[in-house]
Design a protein around this nucleic acid. Structure first.
Length: 696
RNA sequence: GCCACCGUAGCUCAGUGGUAGAGCACACCCUUGGUAAGGGUGAGGUCACGGGUUCAAGUCCCGUCGGUGGCUCCA
């Protein structure tokens, strides 16, 4: 006699076994109609799962009470939609082998292997969708059936589905004694798929869906294994939600830093220069420079020393650091002495001979630096260091070059040449905790100033079962503890990921999302026991003996390229006044106010404010529109009335009206103060406004 | 690197094997106006590049370069 506890605490008793569907029907016909699945003692389950014992039960519907899509409801819908899509594709493309089709954050996908010669393209999406519509319209029930592991495997082998056999074997290895299938309709006659479930009750419950795009993937994610075709789709409970989702995607496109980068002329990537090599145009250069000034100022306050180092270094340097031998495939090919190269050529040396000689150190070329640390290390090693000198903090906006795979490059977020806000701290063991904390305090300050609160922190610690790590385990424990504590103090969501430490030390990573939901690692703080060893670094201790310092690598924003890319999307291109390429645009009403306009402009420039004047012959409406398109924070409209009173009429980006006039000197002072305080005080706060963010 | 799609004016994009198009931007002229585009005229093209098929290619085929989405990778 199961006793069922509902989320509100109420209880229901049943004679013999029951199902969530029955419970839903008992609660009300509306719920019975809208229920998609159930959570039984915390496990998401089918609506017709039989309940024989006491349990806690929550029914899952497509929407929460607030009318938002329910995460579990979406999971069920999308998982089920994946089946429907797979059936549709199987019907349309005979011979397709199914691999794996889970729901994911942005919808669902199904991996499949097409028979030799067969291909699918986005032109097929419409056909697939019509076929899916047919299946949905038939409203066939998702029917689960189970078989013991042995016969189940036998069945799959007979069907010749290599990938499904593999899936089943993995499930059995993981402890399953039974395999389950879901038929869309009647087992034996209708389409079916090996699947753990759960699913919505019937295909008709999938209210709205769309096949989104195609991609390739590898079986087991292994590039040496079979290449699979992955078809992505999205599903919602109703058409309205789907429409909203597609609209949001459109909106997101407008925030895309690649789109805004062109529109606002922030940067340019040129085919003739090279893939993944960013040209910072004047507007973007302002944003970057402002950030660098900000970061640099904070670093000086925290006792960092600025250094500059060249873009290349001897190959041997990177042999010592280990970069060249271990990460060769992600570096640009070394630059080799012309005479030496010529000599080898006349000897008839082959390319592979050359590569070998390079590996073995018989050729000493130069490498475009993949990291800044070796140069900074040589600065540390250039003088005798005492324990009293530590910590030594060497900072540089250092440009590094990495040979990223061509398919991975794009926009500002993944490039081949980038400038890190890099620094290396050389310290004593007992200073690690303080130094790590110091690194994070800069991150916190800058993220707060920019209003970037939507980031998460990963703490990578070592895998206790592995022996790949260098350094003393008790020191590791201390360093990990320092990272953990510092991350916690930061106040952002953080996760500890055992096994994610580098072999040379634990690390803290900062991760943000872009407009299309992709996560990007920005900065990192890494404790390093390895490089000081490799370079035989030392300092003289209070005991007059030589000791090994510990290094901390830290680039809290990762690279200026990626960070500015993320920042463009964060602000949707509408930078706060202190960062904006153009802070103020002066708009004369007509030629009659041209003289006053140039006077205003000159005053702004004298104060170092980035300003321009729009002295075209357009009407003021057009000038306002054009300035709004460029997302200029403040517009100073000047006409005869303003000139007479030595005032300007102010308009701010995001506020769709004239804010009124202000005394010219006061305006100048206020904008200058806003710039100086990096938004600490703002001109706009002097007006009663409700800022809208949808001004474009 | 792999799979799919894409590359036409400065930008955003139409274009059915048969004369290269639009809007915006740009130049010039008219308009001198008070807060999200006044009006006119004009200039602007090796249709990414290289081959091929065809009487004829922006359009079809192959290759290269570049872009987009995903996979893999990211010290």
């Amino acid at each position: 006699m199961p006793r069922i506890t509902l989320p509100d605490g109420s209880e229901r008793r049943y004679e013999g076994s029951t199902t969530p569907a029955e419970v839903a029907a008992d609660i009300g016909p509306g719920l019975a109609k809208s229920a998609l699945g159930a959570i039984i003692d915390g496990t998401l389950s089918d609506l017709d799962t039989s309940i024989d014992a006491d349990c806690a039960l929550a029914l899952v519907t497509a929407k929460t009470r607030e009318g938002e899509p329910d995460a579990n409801g979406l999971f069920l819908l999308r998982h089920s939609a994946a089946h429907v899509m797979a059936e549709a594709i199987t019907n349309l493309f005979p011979g397709v082998q199914l691999v794996y089709g889970p729901p994911v954050e942005q919808g669902f996908y199904y991996d499949m292997a097409f028979p030799d010669g067969a291909t699918i393209s986005s032109e097929d999406f419409e056909r697939i969708e019509s076929e899916m519509k047919r299946i949905v319209k038939e409203d066939r029930p998702f029917t689960r059936y189970e078989m013991p592991a042995g016969p189940g495997l036998e069945k799959l082998r007979e069907e010749g589905s290599k990938y499904k056999v593999d899936n089943a074997e993995r499930a059995i290895e993981a402890g399953s004694t039974e395999l389950s299938w879901y038929a869309t309709g009647a087992p034996g006659t209708d389409w079916e798929d090996l699947c753990r479930g759960p699913h919505v009750p019937s295909t008709g419950r999938i209210g709205a869906f769309k096949v989104m795009n195609l991609a390739s993937s590898y079986w087991h994610g292994d590039e040496n294994s079979d290449r699979l075709t992955r078809v992505y789709g999205i599903a919602f409970a109703d058409k309205k939600q789907l429409k909203r989702h597609l609209q949001l995607l459109e909106e997101a496109k407008k925030r895309d830093h690649r789109v805004l980068g062109k529109q606002l002329r922030l940067f340019h990537i040129d085919e003739q220069v090279g893939q993944g090599l960013v040209l910072w145009t004047p507007n973007g250069a302002v944003v970057r420079q402002q950030l660098q000034d900000f970061i640099g100022e904070e670093l000086r306050k925290q006792g960092y020393d600025q250094v500059f180092t060249p873009h290349i270094g001897k190959l041997d340097l990177y042999r010592t650091s280990g970069h060249f031998p271990y990460y060769q495939e992600s570096q640009y090919t070394p630059v080799i002495d012309r005479a030496q190269l010529h000599e080898f050529a006349t000897e008839g040396c082959s390319c592979s001979d050359l590569a070998n000689k390079m590996d073995e150190g018989e050729i000493d070329g130069y490498l475009l630096k993949p990291m800044n640390c070796p140069h900074h290390i040589r600065i540390y090693a250039s003088e005798q260091r005492s324990y009293r000198d530590l910590p030594i903090r060497l900072a540089e906006f250092g440009t590094v070059y990495r040979w990223e795979q061509s398919g991975e490059i794009g926009g500002l977020t993944r490039v081949r040449g980038f400038t890190q806000d890099d620094a290396h701290l050389f310290c004593r063991e007992d200073q690690i905790a303080d130094e790590v904390r110091g690194c994070l305090s800069i991150v916190k300050l800058i993220f707060n100033t920019l209003g970037m609160t939507d980031y998460r922190v990963r703490v990578g610690t070592r895998d206790p079962d592995s022996s790949k790590y260098v350094g003393d385990p008790t020191n590791w424990d201390k360093a990990e503890e320092a990272c953990r504590n510092a991350a916690q103090e930061l106040g952002a969501p953080f996760s500890e990921e055992p096994g994610e430490a580098a072999f040379y030390g634990p690390k803290i990573d900062f991760v943000v999302k872009d407009v299309i939901g992709r996560e990007w690692q920005l900065g990192t703080v890494q404790v390093d026991y390895n490089l000081p060893e490799r370079f035989d670094l030392e300092y003289v201790g209070a005991d007059n003996a030589r000791h090994r310092p510990v290094m901390i690598h830290r680039a809290p924003f990762g690279s200026m390229e990626r960070f500015v890319g993320v920042l463009i999307e964060h602000f949707a291109g509408a930078f706060p006044c202190w960062l904006a390429p153009e802070q103020v645009r002066v708009l004369p009403i007509s030629d009659k106010s041209a003289d006053y306009a140039s006077e205003v402009l000159a005053s702004l420039k004298t104060l170092g404010i980035r300003a321009t004047v729009d002295d075209g012959s357009e009407r003021i409406q057009a000038k306002v529109k054009v300035a709004a398109d460029m997302k200029v924070p403040y517009l100073a409209v000047v006409g005869p009335r303003d000139a007479e009173n030595r005032e300007v009429s102010i308009r701010a980006f995001g506020v769709d009206r004239n804010l009124g006039s202000m005394d010219l000197d006061e305006f100048l002072r206020t904008v200058a103060a806003e710039t100086e305080t990096r938004g600490g005080t703002r001109l706009i706060d002097r007006f009663e406004t409700t800022e809208s963010s949808t001004a474009d």
